[in-house]
């Protein structure tokens, strides 16, 4: 009997707690004239890759005072969950809601028309569905891939440069194709084995893929997406050079990371914010590239890169800049 009484007591206590919780909620909308941005993204906000690039950019805008509040929902790999989050942010009155994942396009297309006063941004993509409250943005990651591919070919002694990819889609495919093209521009006879491991998450498989590429003779590697941290580790152990992308990966292996292509979304995001403040809610496509400083090759100062190779890289970047 005592047992039961205790249980009942707990039940009432918890119910009381919940009731108290509900009544104490204020939820004051807080539309005090500031500019509020929300982002929904598929992986963790510190993945040293795709998601981190946008979160870092937004945090910078917040500390620069361009926007007043940044809300992040990360790890939203279920598209329908992302849809719920996007809808909720929109109805919470956020001024700009960013759907940071190509796979979110389908639901965004259905949600955006329901909130004509809210501005949405969708990336990476080149499509705004003809809606005037949707911006789209993408990264010309093939540009950086090409630049680093050229340098990789110049650094390779074995004429073999390997690439580890996740699933052959979107931004990853763009980068890998660009990198491969760059290698072949510099050295048409080079061998460029590419290993897509068919997973964005399997770190162990990415590391074995790197081993396999090294086994095939590669002495310079690159790779894209969040699971490459495993491949960088193998490159480090085997003393093989590495080119990174999406974020600066020097910290992963200071000895062997030559350079990283880093995404800087701040510029185009700031333009978007300015537009939204001026009442233009969308309808435009933004691309970050070398010409608008959205893409930057960040070199590892700790790595002793020969000057002629560095020159090759700088020349390639300059070409992209002059072409616009």
């Amino acid at each position: 009997m005592k047992n039961v009484t205790t249980k009942m007591a707990i039940l009432f206590a918890v119910v009381a707690l919940i009731a108290a919780a509900c009544s104490s909620s204020d939820d004051s909308g807080s539309d005090d004239g500031g500019f509020r941005v929300a982002v929904v993204a598929p992986s963790a906000s510190n993945d040293l890759a795709f998601t981190q690039s946008i979160v870092d950019a937004l945090n910078k805008l917040e500390s620069d005072g361009v926007v007043s509040e940044v809300a992040v929902t990360d790890g939203t790999f279920v598209v329908d969950d992302a849809a719920v989050a996007i809808r909720d942010y929109a109805s919470d009155g956020y001024d700009l809601v960013i759907a940071h994942g190509s796979q979110y396009g389908g639901p965004l297309q259905e949600i955006a028309p329901d909130f004509p006063e809210t501005s949405f941004a969708w990336g990476t993509s080149a499509d705004t569905f003809g809606l005037d409250n949707v911006y789209s943005y993408e990264a010309a990651s093939d540009e950086g891939g090409r630049v680093m591919g050229i340098m990789a070919a110049a650094l390779s002694q074995t004429n073999t440069v390997g690439i580890v990819g996740p699933i052959e889609v979107g931004d990853a495919k763009l980068y890998v194709d660009g990198f491969k093209a760059g290698v072949l521009v510099q050295n048409p006879s080079a061998d460029v084995p590419v290993n897509y491991i068919d997973s964005f998450s399997d770190v162990a498989l990415a590391s074995e893929a790197a081993s396999s590429l090294i086994g095939a003779g590669a002495d310079v590697l690159s790779g894209t997406a969040q699971m490459v941290v495993g491949a960088v580790g193998v490159a480090k152990t085997d003393g093989v050079l590495w080119f990174g992308t999406q974020a600066n990966q020097t910290s992963l292996a200071p000895e062997i990371v030559v350079a990283s292509q880093v995404y800087h979304w701040e510029g185009i995001l700031e333009e978007m914010v300015t537009n939204v403040k001026d009442g233009k809610l969308g309808g435009e496509l933004y691309v970050i590239n070398f010409a608008n400083d959205g893409l930057v090759i960040e070199y590892n100062d700790g790595f002793d890169l020969p000057d002629d190779v560095r020159q090759l890289g700088d020349d390639a970047v300059a070409r992209f800049k002059s072409e616009g």
Binding site: P42, F77, V78, D80, A83, G106, D198
Partner: peptide
């Protein structure tokens, strides 16, 4: 019944089933 009315994958079952 989903919002996107199409099937999309992120390369995992969880991405579809949640």
């Amino acid at each position: 019944g989903g919002e996107s009315h199409r099937m999309v994958t992120d390369g995992s079952t969880l991405g579809f089933t949640g």
